[in-house]
């Protein structure tokens, strides 16, 4: 009996390092294939760039590990939280290895996120923040800082004086309303700057163009524009060109859609403060993959903002 106990003790002693190394082996779980689902807010060119980044990450993981990685991009046709939840719930039914989501409304998406957690599906949130009290890794850039970069640039170009206007995006979208508020904060710091009008474009280029045209008609002394969504500056730029005010009205845009870059190249827009959707998509997939391998991931990953001017947007 004593011998048996000794053997057992020795076995346990030998097993300890093995157990310990197993515990240390976070991130070593490997699968032959992974399938991740990316659900953005809505069908939109900005999210196409997120998808491009996500697909690039899938290709990178495959090249480095040999595992096949499929990224399924499933976008709601309208920016409606009910429709988005329906897509999330249906995607969960396919038992994916991970879900990357841009939440339309964190509190409204909570029930679907809780269901995903109940099913142990790894989650990553990009371009938005998790619902209060839910520990989900999230990726994004500082929306307020992005807006402040644009507003400060406009103040600088105008020499701290003049009438300006702000184009809001979708009033119910938190990132759009944060940007609009941060524009206001910067302008309020400069006595010479007067915000004479605010438009709402509902993330539509056409609406932005109509609103901007009307606002410039009503405010002939308007000197500058900032926007709160990606569609806004493109519509504003069109309105500036149509009104023949290029060079008289300064536009500091937002984000890096191809039309925005063209307007910077053509001199319609001075510059743009851009979040980096490709990076958000890329790192969303990377964090999902890391979670699927059992690795720990950071709670927040900042992909930063880029300031785009004629000098750095390229030909």
């Amino acid at each position: 009996m004593k011998k048996f106990s000794m053997l057992l003790a020795c076995a346990a002693a030998f097993a300890l390092p093995v157990v310990a190394s197993a515990q240390d082996a976070a991130g070593t779980t490997k699968k032959e294939s992974y399938r991740f689902v990316v659900v953005p807010k809505v069908v939109h060119p900005w999210f196409d760039k997120v998808n491009e980044g996500a697909q690039a990450a899938a290709a990178a993981i495959k090249a480095q590990t040999g595992s096949s990685v499929e990224v399924v991009y499933s976008a709601p046709q309208s920016a409606d939280v009910v429709q988005q939840n329906q897509i999330i719930d249906s995607a969960l039914a396919t038992q994916p290895d991970g879900l990357a989501l841009d939440l339309l409304d964190p509190s409204g998406n909570r029930a679907s996120l809780e269901e995903a957690q109940n099913q142990n599906v790894p989650l990553v949130i990009f371009d938005s923040i998790p619902p209060e009290g839910m520990a989900i890794p999230y990726i994004g850039s500082d929306f307020c800082e992005q807006a402040k970069i644009a507003a400060r640039r406009l103040v600088e170009v105008l020499g701290g004086e003049g009438e300006v206007a702000i184009m809001q995006g979708v009033p119910t979208a938190p990132n759009h309303s944060i940007r609009a508020e941060c524009h206001r904060q910067v302008f309020a710091e400069h006595k010479g700057i007067k915000v004479v009008a605010e438009g709402i474009d509902n993330d539509s280029i056409e609406t932005a163009q109509q609103q901007a045209a009307a606002i410039m008609q009503a405010n002939p002394n308007l000197k500058g524009w900032v926007a709160s969504d990606a569609a806004g500056p493109i519509g504003i730029g069109q309105a500036i060109v149509e009104a023949g005010k290029q060079g008289k009205v300064t536009l500091v845009g937002l984000d890096n859609l191809p039309e925005m870059l063209d307007m910077i190249r053509d001199g319609v827009a001075d510059s743009s403060s851009a979040s980096q959707p490709e990076l958000q998509g890329y790192w969303s997939v990377m964090l999902l993959w890391a979670q699927a391998t059992g690795a720990k991931v950071p709670g927040y990953l900042d992909t930063g903002n880029a300031f785009l001017t004629k000098e750095n947007v390229g030909g």
Binding site: A79, D80, V82, S107, G108, R110, A111, T172
Partner: peptide, 16 residues
């Protein structure tokens, strides 16, 4: 019922 489903009263309910 949708408010009960979401746990919040979203202004966008019913748009679709």
């Amino acid at each position: 019922l949708m408010v009960a489903r979401l746990g919040t009263a979203q202004p966008s309910i019913g748009e679709t």
